[in-house]
Design a protein around this nucleic acid. Structure first.
Lengths: 118, 118
DNA sequence: CAGGATCCTATACGATACTG
DNA sequence: CAGTATCGTATAGGATCCTG
């Protein structure tokens, strides 16, 4: 029995599927930054998120928020004002990404030092 | 001084840039799975990684590995065999992503439970 | 075995304008 | 304010075949 057929290899396959499952939901340029914006404040309006994220268009923000809602990472709350206000916030499931997002923030700072220079 | 001009807001902007820096390097469907494959074993050949990741093509694997090498996350080592063998491994900088990848693995399992059913 | 070359499609993404 | 509609480009990614 070699390393591809034993339990070690099977565990590996399982972990590979899990990490791919995560990426199905989180990959792309904007989802993590959007979630990060909502991590920091726990209520955030559409236009605030639009302002938080450098370079995103309203079209993409709208589209990505919809997908995040479908995947139960954020919830949308419409306030009865004029004109309407919409608040977005992380669900409990969304909050379970906080550690990962904080680590990605720290890693981004470290990475810049490694690449751009010491 | 409102929340957009004080230190709290400035810190937020800084964190937003950091997380976007991370995503510039890591976003896309394949990079995290590729790194995950190399996390588990610490030496991994091209064809092994190809086998680890469900659905990836050799063209994409080749392309993504190059970008990861440019960003100093992996290193490439050619062994003098016939035909050639190529070993990939994480750099020290690449290893600094291990925590994030492990968390993403756990999160993928949890997410499947949330979405598909309890 | 480890890719590169070629060709193709899908979709991610951007810009701008419009609306209740 | 919080989107939608429309249009366009760029790139991500897939399939297949080829090579030292």
């Amino acid at each position: 029995m070699n390393c591809h057929t034993n339990d070690f290899g099977k565990e590996h396959k399982k972990e590979m599927r899990a990490v791919q499952d995560s990426m199905d939901v989180l990959s792309g340029k904007w989802k993590i930054p959007i979630l990060s914006s909502m991590c920091y404040y726990n209520q955030r309006r559409f236009s605030d998120i639009l302002n938080d994220i450098d370079g995103i268009s309203n079209r993409m923000l709208s589209k990505e928020l919809k997908e995040l809602e479908i995947n139960q990472l954020v919830k949308r709350k419409v306030l009865d004002t004029h004109p309407v206000t919409v608040q977005y916030q992380l669900t409990e499931h969304g909050k379970s990404l906080k550690t990962i997002i904080n680590n990605l923030t720290d890693w981004g700072i470290a990475h810049r030092k490694v690449i751009i220079g010491k």
